[in-house]
Nucleic acid binder design. Sequence first.
DNA 1: CTTTATTTTTAGTTAAGTCTAAAAATAAAG
DNA 2: CTTTATTTTTAGACTTAACTAAAAATAAAG
Lengths: 218, 218
Amino acid sequence: MFTLAEENYLKAIFHLEHEGSGEVSTNAIAESMETKPSSVTDMIQKLAEKKLVVYKRYKGTLLTEKGKKIAANVIRKHRLWEVFLVDKLNFHWDEVHEIAEQLEHIQSEELITRLDKFLGSPDFDPHGDPIPDKNGVLKRTEKKLLSQIEKNQKGVCVGVKESSADFLQYLDKKKISIGTKITVLGKEFFDGSMIIQVGNEQFFISHKIAENLYVQTL
Amino acid sequence: MFTLAEENYLKAIFHLEHEGSGEVSTNAIAESMETKPSSVTDMIQKLAEKKLVVYKRYKGTLLTEKGKKIAANVIRKHRLWEVFLVDKLNFHWDEVHEIAEQLEHIQSEELITRLDKFLGSPDFDPHGDPIPDKNGVLKRTEKKLLSQIEKNQKGVCVGVKESSADFLQYLDKKKISIGTKITVLGKEFFDGSMIIQVGNEQFFISHKIAENLYVQTL
DNA sequence: CTTTATTTTTAGTTAAGTCTAAAAATAAAG
DNA sequence: CTTTATTTTTAGACTTAACTAAAAATAAAG
Ligand SMILES: [Mn+2]
Ligand SMILES: [Mn+2]
Ligand SMILES: [Mn+2]
Ligand SMILES: [Mn+2]
C-alpha cells in the first residue's frame, strides 16, 4: 500500500509530533532520518497530496488521522517484532532495533494478528515502549524521566528514551533493566548528575543518563 | 549487501538453472519474474559486472559460485520463514509463500542462525522443498514426480513442484499432504491421467496434477 | 541458401527517492 | 526597521529499476 520510504517518513513524523508540540519542522525530520531537508520537502509534498499529512509551506507538518494510523501500525509491527526477537529468539535488547527496522515493513495484516497472538498480545516492547493496538491507539502510561525524580524518592525502571546499543549496554553494566528499582540518594543542581542506588550498589550517573531512563515512582 | 531486485533475479536464475540444463535464457527469466526481457538484459549486465553471473550476449546466463551462494541463502531464508509461519504461527501451507517472499530479504546473519535453531534446524519447508544449509548446499533427495510412477506402485508424497494456493487447496480437498501415501491404480497413456488411491478414497487426477506432486516410491 | 519468425539487445523514457547548489521566506540581531 | 542568519523550498542532476519501440542476432521454414 505504501512504500518503505513513505512509511519511514510517517513514522519519523509520528515520533517527532509526540516529542515536541505542534507542527514538525522540515529540519527536524531531516535530522531524525539522517537525510537532507530538500529530500524531506519533496516527500512531504507527496504525503500531503495523499492526505497523509497537512503541510503548510515554511510552517511545518502534521499527520492526518489517516497518517497517524499508518504510522502507529508501523510502530506496532516494529515493537511486536522486537518482542519476538527478544522473547523467542533470545536476542539481547540492544541487538533488536536494526532488525525490527526492516521487519516493520513486511506487509500482511494476518501475519501481525498471528504474531501478536503467538507472543501473548504484549503491551510493551523490550525497551518498555507501549505497543499500539490494532487501531493505532497507544496506551498512555504514568512515567517520568529519572531526571525529574527528587532526592530520596524511589522508582521502578519502566523504559528507556534512547535505545542505542551504547546506552543499553551501559545499563547492563550497571545492572539496570525493565523492572529494576532505583533510589535517588543525591542530586546535583549544577549539572543534574545523581547518586543512585540499584540493588546493593550505589553509584554516580550523569544527567544524560538520567534523562534517558523512564521510571514509575513508588 | 545486495538490493531486493538483485536478490530476486539471482533466485529466479538459480531455480531456472535447476529446472533446465545449461544456460538460462533471457526470456525464461523474464517470464518467471513477470517482467520484460529488456529489463532482464539490463539487470543481467549489472550482475555480470558484479561477477554474480556469467553472461554471453545472445547465449544466456549462468550463476557464478558467488551468485549461487547468494541465491541459495535467499532461498534458505525463504524456506525457514515458511517453516516459522506454518509451525509457529499456524498458517496453512497455501498462505505462506507471499509473506516469505518479503521476509526472505531481511538482512541479518544472526537472525537466520537463531531462527533456524528456534525451528529445530528443519531440513524441509512446508511444501517439502529442501532448505539449503549455511553454506548454500542443497541436500539432494530421491524423489520422482507422481506422473513418473508406474501402475500398481506406491509412493509417499514428499513435496509439490507448484506451490500456488490453488494447487495446494486442491490437494487439501483430496486429503493429500506431505507424508500421505498414494497408490497408482491406473494410468491412461493418451493423456497421462491417473486413478489413484489415497486413504480409503479412489479418484481420478489429471496429468497436470500428477506432474506437480513429488513422491518417494515405497 | 534465403526469407521469415523468434529471441535478445540497445536506445530512449519514466518514476521514486536521493543529492547539491541556489533562491526565497522567515526569524533573530542590531 | 534593516541587516544578517537560519530555515525551507525550488531547480537541476543522479541512480535504480522498470517500460516501449526499434534494431540486431539467432533460429526455423521453405
Ligand atoms: Mn523503517
Ligand atoms: Mn523498542
Ligand atoms: Mn523476493
Ligand atoms: Mn516453499
